[in-house]
C-alpha cells in the first residue's frame, strides 16, 4: 500500500490538479481543510467497511448465532467454520474457486480484445450504417436477461454446448457486453485525434494506430473493463446455474447456493466463511486493477 500511496503522490506533480491551492500562501488553513477532508473520508470509509466487517464477524460465529447477534461483537470466534466450509461440499471449495477463475480469465481476455476492437471502429472509423449499428448495440442490452436466456439456451443446446464453458465465455469474445464497447467508445473519443493524424502522416494504418496509440492510452478504460468483468462474472449466479449441469463444473455462486436448504438445516457458519473467502479474489483483483486505473494520459506525459 505504501508504494501505491507514493505513486499517487507522484501523480499530483504530473497532473497538477489543485492549481488553486498552489496560489494560496497560508498553509495553516490548508492543513485544517485537509484534516477535515480526511475525517470525512474516514467516516465514510467506516460506513463502507461495515458490510464486510459484518460478513467476516458472521463467518466466525458459532452455527446459527448469525441471526441472534446483530452487532459486530464477537465473543466466541470459530475459525473452524472455514475448515468446515472448505470441505462441506462435494468437492473442496478450491475446486469451485478454480472453475470460477477459469471463466473469469477467459471472460476478461474476451472482453478486452473484442470490445476494444468494436469500440475503435465506432469511435474512429467511418462506415456505412455506423449509427444504426451503434443503436442496435445499445438496444441489445435493454432486454432483461430472464427473457433472453431461454431462446439463448435453446440456441446453445442445439449447438451441443450445454455443460461446457462456451456459453459463458464465447459471448465475451464476441463483444456482447455492449456496456464495455460503449465505455471504450467514450474513452477513445476522449483521446485527441491529433495523435491519430500524426501517426497516419507517418504512414500508420488503422491496426497500427489501434495497437500503438489507442490501446496504450486506453489503459484506464481497459483496467475498468477488466475489473468489472471480473466482479460481474465472478458474482454471476444465473448463467452458470442454467448452463452447467455437472457439479464438477459449478462456479462459486452456484456452490454457495448449495449450502442453503429451504426446508432443512443450513450451515450458516460454513456458508459465511466461504462467502468471505470468495470475496478475496475479487478484492485482490480490484487492488491490482485499480493501480492501472491511475495510469492515464496524465501519467504518460502526453502533450
Amino acid at each position: 500500500m505504501t508504494t501505491d500511496t507514493a505513486r499517487a503522490g507522484d501523480v499530483r506533480t504530473t497532473s497538477g490538479p489543485p492549481p488553486g491551492e498552489r496560489r494560496r500562501p497560508a498553509d495553516r488553513g490548508r492543513r485544517r481543510k485537509s484534516l477535515v477532508k480526511h475525517l470525512v473520508l474516514t467516516a465514510a470509509c467506516l460506513l463502507m467497511i461495515y458490510p464486510l466487517a459484518w460478513m467476516v464477524v458472521s463467518s466466525l460465529r458459532p452455527e446459527g448465532e448469525v441471526f441472534r447477534q446483530t452487532g459486530l461483537l464477537l465473543t466466541d470466534p470459530r475459525p473452524e467454520n472455514y475448515e468446515r466450509g472448505w470441505n462441506a461440499l462435494r468437492y473442496p471449495f478450491g475446486h469451485y474457486l478454480l472453475n470460477s477463475l477459469a471463466v473469469v480469465v477467459f471472460s476478461i481476455v474476451g472482453n478486452l480484445v473484442s470490445c476494444s476492437m468494436a469500440a475503435y471502429a465506432f469511435a474512429r472509423q467511418e462506415f456505412r450504417g455506423r449509427k444504426l449499428l451503434f443503436a442496435i448495440m445499445l438496444v441489445s442490452i435493454m432486454l432483461p436477461l430472464h427473457v433472453v436466456i431461454v431462446p439463448q439456451y435453446i440456441l446453445f443446446s442445439e449447438l451441443g454446448w450445454v455443460n461446457t464453458l462456451l456459453p459463458l465465455v464465447l459471448p465475451k469474445f464476441l463483444a456482447t457486453d455492449a456496456f464495455f464497447v460503449f465505455l471504450m467508445v467514450q474513452f477513445i473519443r476522449g483521446i485527441p485525434r491529433e495523435l491519430d493524424e500524426a501517426a497516419r502522416i507517418d504512414g500508420a494504418g488503422h491496426v497500427a494506430i489501434f495497437t500503438r496509440i489507442i490501446l496504450p492510452l486506453l489503459v484506464p478504460a481497459l483496467a475498468t473493463t477488466a475489473i468489472f468483468t471480473f466482479i460481474w462474472t465472478w458474482n454471476d449466479f444465473f448463467t452458470p446455474l442454467i448452463y452447467l449441469t455437472s457439479p464438477d463444473a459449478y462456479t462459486v455462486p452456484v456452490a454457495l447456493r448449495s449450502f442453503v436448504d429451504s426446508q432443512g438445516a443450513t450451515s450458516w457458519g460454513a456458508l459465511f466463511a466461504m462467502s468471505v473467502l470468495s470475496l478475496l479474489p475479487v478484492f485482490i483483483a480490484f487492488l491490482i486493477g485499480q493501480r492501472l486505473l491511475v495510469r492515464g494520459i496524465a501519467t504518460t506525459g502526453l502533450k
Partner: peptide, 13 residues
C-alpha cells in the same frame, strides 16, 4: 475453445 479445450466435465448432455 470450441474444440473442447475449455469444456469441463462431460460435454455430452
Amino acid at each position: 475453445s470450441s474444440c473442447g479445450i475449455m469444456s469441463p466435465g462431460d460435454g455430452d448432455t
